[in-house]
Each structure stands twice: as structure tokens, then as C-alpha cells.
Design a protein around this nucleic acid. Structure first.
Lengths: 327, 327
DNA sequence: CTGAAAGCGCTTACAG
DNA sequence: CTGAAAGCGCTTACAG
């Protein structure tokens, strides 16, 4: 392995000068620069990043903590993070937390010891002490807002109102809202948005708490549809729940969208694979990941950034689980 | 930050002794061990992994290179890799290659410089020189077998034969096989398996090359179904293609499974969310990832492992896109 | 069984 | 503008 000493020797300068040249820090005369450049090229020298890290305490590594990469929301996020990170010369470490504070804390701590440069986190524990004491750049995604931690999220509330209106405009008279878990901020925002839109509409509605899980959602919707035969619209707080609702409806022989219209939230790829295609409030997950990564890297590199909250607009995707608007 | 020197001083021994104690390497007397243990505890000392890495050239980091984490096959793989890695004290770096040899090579090289300990790779470039010259433990997943690189894969050929037989047993008279890309080993194996089963059946069949991509598959199947009205069975080499086929059939008003039966391959979660549920040849992706990770770590830790090829059995999941077997 | 010392390969005040 | 030297925090022959 050729080291900085070899380069220095060949170029006839000190290692300090080589280091300065390599890092573009401090003064290096034109002649010295030329000699070093030639030596680097000739020896095919490449700086050893581990040795550098020991000094700088930086590694160009960032951690991405998600509850579970297997949840269809997260792969696209991970992709965006990785793409942008690569652009800036960073590499990403993937961590599944299972929403388990201990696992999260453990990752945070072991990676910090490894001089990781920062974290992008989707977590409900952001107010926990192990975050407050991190002294490392962190950006929160999707969930939790904390005055110390920049956050990027969809405009969940407005999006949910939009989704609700899709159902209202299409003549639904009794709407079932599949509300997400109460400990999730985005789920609560979506609930607010639903309420914003439904409140003054005069339309009947039911609210049922429902995890973002296919089989559970199917079971819950099956029960509710049996009890309330006149439900003609479902707004699910996630596409996975919407898929469960569709499955339940199909098994009960309820025609979608003729007897029952369904709108989801998320915009995951599965939505268009269903038949009929799922009408949904699509989040721009890729954009969220991209923004989060840029914000994080700015912080890592000590660039000033005033903004603390980044809202990414959602977009309606009208597909086959809703009818044409009645004139 | 408390260092090994602090511990040595407090324990009244040399740093060499502390290091030996910490790494359980070389002799340490009972007394010395006790003193060091006490000092470690009192100072809450934690070894600096970066400093260690500079010496050992090991980092407890492994790289996972996949074409695209967004492809529904890979999140579960990533999950398995991460779970097992964590168990052994390793952390995983996620790399999307887009099947691009340059990107792959770039990751391999930059991470090698960072003293990454090994790679789990899903790639078609495994015979490329940058792999041969790696001198780092590598395990291949799903694709490509190379006498120097251990591989874990499904029994694709047998699985495809099983899937084909599902259609044959249910009375299909003309089967369309959606063959995957020709540069993919697993796709070729599945093609062989299809041929194994169809050859002597006397049943008519067509083979069309079709990427593992939803919209493309839909388009291709739409065309074929228009041209050949008597096709009554489709075996797709991937679930995503099967979903495209189902969409095409639905748009053409072809009833599944009454007029057309469909079988997929992969077993991704989306399959059960479709209506009717997708009958498929399910791979045990999690198990593949888990095995690959264990094999890799064994190699990293220089444990002997004779076996070079690990085959993970597939499992039929009969759902709604196929009929009951005719008696 | 133990310690002094060299070494892993870099960066960074500091003096000149 | 440059170099000698200390330092980042560990590991590992080697001599005893």
C-alpha cells in the first residue's frame, strides 16, 4: 500500500505539504503542487480514509434509521437517501429499528463511536434523551417535530382533506375513515385533515383506528362493512390499509367503485397494480428523502440553513377505486 | 474521551496489557485482568473502533449491493441481512447498483478503502475483473455462480416446473410463459424449469421475453392476449410481471381464474393484496439473505466452510388466480 | 505474564 | 509557503 510518506518522498516535500495539497487546506506553492500531483499520479496514491477519520472524526457515513425497510413506504426513501448521499460522496448505513427504542439507541451509540457523520431518522422517539444528547446532526423524516431537529414531512393534513373531498365530490353519503395508530404524528395530522373536510359537509362518517397492516386492515374493514351496510366510501390513512379494505369488499361481494369508493394515502407502487387501480393521496417519498439528505449534509458540513421544517406537497392520483365526478 | 491510556494508568498496567485483556488475545494474569476490568468500568471506557480499524483493517461493516432496493424483492433481503448482521455485531451499508458495472465497481473500491469486511452482492457482473481482484470475502445472492464465490439461490428451475404444473393440473390448454431477461441467470433457470414441465405435456405454449417491470409486462401481455385469444394460462417469471398480466386481462375483460389462470414467481407481499390473490412460486427471500450473511461472516472470520452453493427451496402459494384442481 | 516501542496512515498547530 | 513533530487511539511483535 502506498502511503502519504511515499508520495512526499517522491515529490521531494514533506507529508504535511502533501496533506495540505490533498485537502486543499493551507498554502501550497505552485511548484510543490505540481510535484505532488505528479507523484500521486505515478504512484496511484489513494488516501486512506480510515486513517483520516481517526484524525478528523468524520467518515462520510450517514445512518438511515427506519422502522422496517420491508414496509413499502421505506425502500423509495432509502433509494433517495442513497442517491443523494452518493452525489455528495457519502455512504449510507441501513438500520431497522422496529420502532424499538432500545434498538434505536443502540444503533445511535455504536455508530457514533464509529464516527458516523449524522443520521436520518424515522422515529417516534425523537424526544427521548438519547437524541437530545447526541451532539450529531440529525434530520427527522415523516414523523415528529422537535425544535432542535429539522424535519421533512408531507402536508398530511391538507392531503387528507384533499382525499376526503375526492369522496365527497363523488357523492359518498357515509364515509368510513381508517385512522392510523394514535402514536403516529402523520396519522394524527391525517385525521385532522379528514375532520377539516368532513365536518361541515353534513355527510355521515365513522372513524376506526386501524394499523398500517394489510391483514389487520382487511379484518377490521370486513367487520365494519358487515355492521354498517350503508357505507359507500372509505378513506384509508395508508395504501396498505386501503388494499386491505378492497380485499374485504371483494370478499363481501361489494363492487368497487360502484357501491363503494376507496381512497388511500401514500402512493406506493402497489396502488397501480391493483385492479381497479387505487385512487390515493400520493406522497413524494423520493423527494422527502432527497431533501432530508441534503439538509443533513449541509448540517454536517456546517453550512448555515435557517429553515427547520420542510413540507413536501402530496399529489392526488385518481384511479379506478373512485368514480367520475358527478355533474 | 477516555482512552486506553487512561485505563492503563488507572489500572496500573501498560496499554498493551489493557489491549490484550480487551481483545482476549495473549496472556493476562488474573490480577491484571481484575484491575483492568475495574478501571474500564469506573471510567466507562469504550474502545474506539476507528483506531482499532486502522490497525486491524477490519471494521465490522459489510456491504449489500442490490440493483435497486425499490424492487420489491430486495427490501426483505436487506432486512434479513441486517438482522443477521446485527446478531454478529456487524452493520450493513446499502448500495444500489442499478445493474451498472461502473457504479458497482465504484462502491466496491471506495468501500474497500474504508476497510469494509465483505460484500453480499446481487449482480450480473460477478465474473468481471473487479470481483476477481477484490481479495475480500464476497457472497453472491440469487444470481451468478462462480467457483470462487459462494452463492445462495432458490431452486429456480424446480420451482418453475412446479409453477408450470399448477397450470397443467388445472386444465390449461395453451400457456403463455413470461420469460425474464436473458442476461439473468435465475430467469434462465426458470425458463428451463418451465420447459422441463411443459415439454412432454402436449400442451401448447408461447414464450415471450418480458422484463420484471409492471407497466411493460402489462403492455406485452395485452398485445399477446389480443393476438392469441385462446391462451388460458400465464406463468410469469416474476410477481410483478404477473401483476401486469392480471391488469391486462382485467382491461380486456378476461375473467381470472375462470377464463385465464395466472401464476407468478417470487412471493412478494403484494401478491396477497391483489384480488384475486396471486398464486405464486414463493422464494424464501428472508432465508436467502440470512444464509448469505452467515456464510459471509464465517468467511470474514476465517472459519472453514466447505459448501459453496446453497439452495433455498421455494414454496407454492396457491391463491385465487388459479382454480381448484379438476378431478 | 508484561511493558516499551514501533507502527497503522493520516492531520494539524507551530515555528520558521 | 514549508517541514518537524506531536497526536488521533489503538494493536502487535519483541525482549525480558
Amino acid at each position: 500500500m502506498t502511503t502519504i510518506r511515499d508520495v512526499a518522498k517522491k515529490a521531494g516535500v514533506s507529508v504535511a505539504t502533501v496533506s495540505r495539497y490533498l485537502n486543499d487546506s493551507g498554502y501550497v506553492s505552485g511548484d510543490a503542487a505540481k510535484a505532488v500531483a505528479a507523484a500521486v499520479k505515478e504512484l496511484k496514491y489513494e488516501l486512506n480514509p480510515v486513517a483520516r477519520s481517526l484524525n478528523t472524526k468524520k467518515t462520510n457515513l450517514i445512518g438511515l434509521i427506519v422502522p422496517d425497510i420491508t414496509n413499502p413506504f421505506f425502500p423509495e426513501l432509502a433509494r433517495a437517501v442513497e442517491d443523494v448521499a452518493l452525489t455528495y460522496g457519502y455512504t449510507v448505513i441501513l438500520c431497522n429499528s422496529d420502532e424499538n427504542p432500545e434498538k434505536e439507541k443502540n444503533y445511535l451509540e455504536t455508530l457514533k463511536k464509529k464516527y458516523i457523520d449524522g443520521f436520518i431518522v424515522t422515529s417516534n422517539q425523537l424526544d427521548a434523551p438519547h437524541y437530545a444528547n447526541m451532539a450529531l446532526p440529525i434530520v427527522a423524516l415523516d414523523r415528529a417535530i422537535n425544535e432542535h431537529i429539522p424535519t421533512v414531512a408531507s402536508n398530511n393534513r391538507e392531503g387528507a382533506a384533499m382525499g376526503t373531498r375526492v369522496l365527497l365530490e363523488r357523492g359518498c353519503k357515509r364515509i368510513l375513515f381508517l385512522r392510523g395508530p394514535e402514536e403516529l404524528n402523520p396519522a394524527n395530522d391525517r385525521y385532522e385533515g379528514f375532520m377539516d373536510a368532513i365536518r361541515d359537509s353534513g355527510v355521515e362518517y365513522d372513524v376506526v383506528v386501524c394499523p398500517f397492516h394489510f391483514a389487520d386492515s382487511e379484518k377490521i374493514v370486513d367487520r365494519v362493512l358487515r355492521e354498517h351496510k350503508n357505507i359507500d366510501g372509505i378513506f384509508a390513512s395508508s395504501d396498505v390499509s386501503a388494499a386491505g379494505a378492497l380485499k374485504a369488499a371483494a370478499k363481501l361481494g361489494i363492487a368497487v367503485p360502484d357501491e363503494l369508493q376507496v381512497v388511500g394515502f401514500d402512493g406506493i407502487a402497489m396502488g397501480e397494480m391493483l385492479t381497479p387501480g387505487l385512487t390515493t393521496v400520493a406522497q413524494d417519498v423520493y423527494k422527502m428523502g432527497a431533501i432530508a439528505t441534503r439538509v443533513l449534509i449541509k448540517r454536517i458540513e456546517n453550512q448555515v440553513e435557517e429553515q427547520h421544517f420542510f413540507e413536501v406537497p402530496v399529489q392526488l392520483k385518481i384511479r379506478g377505486t373512485t368514480r367520475s365526478v358527478e355533474k
